[in-house]
Simulated scan of single mutants.
Amino acid sequence: MPRGDAAPERLVASALRLFARHGVAGTSLQMIADDLGVTKAAVYYHFRTKDAVVHAVLAPAFAGFAELLDEVERHPQPQRAALLVDGLARQAVQHRALYSVVLRDVAAAQLGRRSAAHTGLWDRLRATLAGPQADGGTLVGAAMFLSGLVGPAVDPDVLALDDDVLERAIRSAGRRLLGLDGVDATDAPRR
């Protein structure tokens, strides 16, 4: 039987790897313990439930979204939306595995919908991308861009792309989708 303790950071990293491979529903606390070579009790010491592990795995993505939103909301529209597209493109490349879990896993999405903070953050993302006078087409474009961020994290051909190429492609696609091609975003936040 495996023994020992695992730091919360190691538990979260293991959980992210396993969630990406097996999904949240397909990953047990025992699998996380086995992956780290520790007892299930060592996992329980830090996280009492799998939901707590999922929240810990998702926390960096949601913190990154919140920081990016806080920064871009200091700018006027439509620059605000362009800066957000650029920042989300950068984050999608930097955190491919995390985006895969955040955006495509049904269990993670359900858990996120039960969190008022997460729901509020998604509402802010969508509203910032769509702008204050959003029509149906703009709302659909914002929703498509946000849901489309999962593609780079799961498509094997896209995974092989160079980070700079991928970031530029996501940024370009998002700007075209939202009609932001000519918007200057030279003050883009580097989060």
Rank of each mutant, 00 (worst) to 15 (best):
F145L: 10
Q133I: 02
S147I: 07
M144N: 11
D181M: 07
F19C: 12
Q91E: 08
F145T: 04
D157C: 09
R190Y: 05
D187N: 11
P152A: 03
Q30T: 09
L16V: 04
D105C: 01
P78D: 01
R90L: 08
L177G: 13
H95S: 07
V150N: 10
G26N: 10
W122K: 10
S115F: 04
T119D: 14
Q79W: 04
L88A: 02
V140E: 10
Q79R: 11
I32P: 04
Q94F: 10
G131Y: 04
V38T: 05
L177N: 11
G23C: 11
S147C: 12
A20S: 13
Q110P: 00
S100N: 13
L103P: 10
S14R: 11
A142P: 06
L16I: 03
L11M: 15
R104T: 09
G87M: 09
H55D: 14
D163P: 05
A25L: 13
D163A: 15
F62E: 13
D162I: 12
G137A: 08
Y99V: 03
A7T: 12
A169C: 12
D51P: 11
Q110W: 11
A52V: 01
V85M: 07
L18M: 03
R96S: 06
A116G: 09
T119Q: 14
G23E: 07
L161I: 04
P8G: 01
L129W: 02
R190W: 03
H22W: 12
H22Y: 14
V54K: 05
A25R: 15
R80C: 03
L178P: 04
H95C: 06
L69K: 00
A25D: 11
G148W: 09
D155C: 09
R48K: 15
V85E: 01
L177M: 14
A143S: 15
Y44P: 07
F47R: 02
H46E: 10
V140Y: 08
Q133N: 14
G26C: 05
D162S: 02
V158G: 09
P2K: 07
G148F: 07
V38K: 01
R176E: 13
R74A: 09
L111W: 12
